[in-house]
């Protein structure tokens, strides 16, 4: 038990089981309406899926460790642009399609920015790794 709870995915799983029990109680003992059953199934089912995905990622990546270098993203202009595009797209439903075109334009620029940021992050990670290899020759 303690080993399960020590892992992130284990805790999410336990929570999912809690929800499943609550849903089962409603279903088995009481006489709930269809929406109660459906929402109960969503809450138990969706959390089970997250527990499974967390477990899968933990398995694949192993335990988090100090050894892996991390890139720290310090700023992202593209994200702010993306937010503005989303907000403009929602406003377009009120004020007409012209705003949707503008929004699409901003979104394109934002997407480009995100790709550039990702490349930069990968490049710096490569640099760190290369430097690490130089420091610790094997």
């Amino acid at each position: 038990m303690k080993r399960v709870v020590s892992r992130g995915s284990g805790v999410v799983l336990i929570w999912a089981l809690n929800l499943t029990i609550l849903w089962a109680v409603a279903w088995a003992i009481f006489d709930p309406d269809a929406m109660t059953v459906a929402l109960g199934a969503w809450m138990a089912g969706s959390v089970l899926v997250w527990a499974a995905s967390a477990w899968w990622r933990e398995r694949r990546a192993g335990r988090p460790s100090d050894e892996q270098p991390l890139t720290i993203v310090d700023a992202s202009h593209a994200t702010a642009l993306l937010a503005i595009a989303i907000i403009a797209a929602l406003l377009a439903t009120q004020f007409g399609p012209w705003l949707a075109y503008i929004s699409a334009g901003i979104a394109l620029v934002a997407a480009g920015g995100l790709v550039r940021e990702r490349r930069a992050a990968r490049a710096s990670l490569e640099q760190v790794r290369a430097a690490g290899r130089e420091e610790r020759p094997t």
């Binding site: 929570w15 809690n18 929800l19 029990i21 609550l22 849903w23 109680v25 409603a26 003992i29 009481f30 006489d31 709930p32 309406d33 109660t36 929402l39 109960g40 809450m43």
Partner: peptide, 21 residues
């Protein structure tokens, strides 16, 4: 977990749900 399963208490007066649960 419990507080995910109590939403129906806002609907006690609708006569549309299982109030007991």
């Amino acid at each position: 977990a419990l507080s995910m399963a109590v939403w129906g208490h806002h609907m006690f007066t609708t006569s549309a749900i299982e109030n007991r649960y």
